[in-house]
């Protein structure tokens, strides 16, 4: 995770009771980082903040967002932080042996921001958080981690509270810049960076995905492999079997059906045989060889 900090020294007003808003950008897109942003100020500055015309970042034009972001950066009565979650990290966490879902990743990121601001020495008393999941469960989770802070968790908080609107601008501008300046790690020829918005419905994103699909590697690491959007593109590429996926078969029915989609061509019997190829049973072999996964081959 990368972090950026707005202030080096803690401003004087930080020892007054402060409010903070947290919002995210880039949760839906199939590519690029997901960004969590927060914005905080003294409770006494709240009225002025409302007059700064922060609206939900999605309702603003890009130039307007950029302008507002530049303004708030120079405003000495406002502090902000961001947490940029790399698409590689998102995919890796969601595809771990013990999978971490997107809500958990989001909550951890938001709580990381609260912790960071508290550690800076800011006296947070109220924190407003936008959420897509169940607000009450999330509020309890936050309160348990930070008992001294009052949390207000709401859907569409970015349009309800100016401090969250401000946070949404911080997050959205950071995400847009990260995607715009993204340097592809992959060095294959004929790659380009016209990936569009990254939203699954965007024709630009669709054609970029189609063009950058690779039969062995899947996609460049800018893409979130764990997104359902990728599934249709993976249907006709080389199959890759992971040890950690074997246990998925008897997992929840939704996950089971997802897996069958990728393995539909082999069927159950074929799958069983292929799992054995990853790791042979080692039956009848001396324990020394078995534990080292060694097998004698006399003909190949």
């Amino acid at each position: 995770m990368q972090s950026m900090e707005s202030e080096v020294a803690v401003p004087k007003w930080a020892s007054e009771p402060c409010i903070m808003g947290i919002d995210e950008a880039g949760r839906g897109p199939v590519l690029g980082p997901m960004v969590y942003g927060c914005l905080y100020c003294a409770v006494s500055y709240q009225k002025t903040l409302s007059s700064l015309n922060f609206a939900d970042s999605k309702t603003l034009k890009e130039e307007k967002r950029e302008e507002l972001f530049e303004n708030l950066k120079t405003d000495e009565s406002i502090g902000w932080e961001v947490d940029v979650i790399d698409p590689r990290e998102l995919s890796a966490k969601m595809l771990k042996k013990n999978k971490i879902n997107l809500n958990e990743i989001s909550h951890e990121s938001a709580m990381g921001l609260v912790k960071r601001v508290v550690n800076l020495g800011v006296l947070l008393t109220e924190v407003y958080v936008d959420t897509v999941g169940d607000p009450e469960k999330y509020r309890i989770k936050l309160f348990e981690r930070f008992p001294g802070i009052k949390f207000v968790v709401a859907k569409k908080a970015d349009s309800l509270y100016p401090v969250v609107s401000g946070a949404s601008i911080v997050a959205k501008v950071t995400r847009d810049r990260a995607v715009r300046d993204w340097v592809l790690d992959e060095t294959a020829e004929n790659m380009h960076r016209n990936f569009g918005s990254g939203y699954p419905g965007d024709p630009g994103t669709k054609s970029w995905l189609e063009h950058h699909k690779h039969h062995v590697f899947g996609f460049p690491t800018l893409v979130r492999f764990s997104w359902g959007t990728c599934t249709p593109y993976f249907k006709d590429i080389v199959e890759v079997l992971w040890e950690s996926d074997k246990t998925d078969e008897d997992a929840s029915s939704t996950r089971g059906s997802k897996r069958q989609l990728t393995l539909s061509s082999v069927g159950f019997a074929g799958l069983k045989r292929k799992s054995e190829e990853i790791e042979s049973s080692g039956k009848g072999r001396c324990k020394f060889f078995q534990s080292r996964k060694l097998e004698q081959i006399s003909h190949f």
Binding site: V216, V238, L241, W242, E243, I278
Partner: peptide
């Protein structure tokens, strides 16, 4: 690699695997 890649043939490994 800790997986089974059902493919046998050339691949631009160094361009993708970093």
């Amino acid at each position: 690699l800790p997986c089974c890649i059902k493919y046998d043939g050339p691949s631009p490994v160094s361009h993708y695997f970093k």
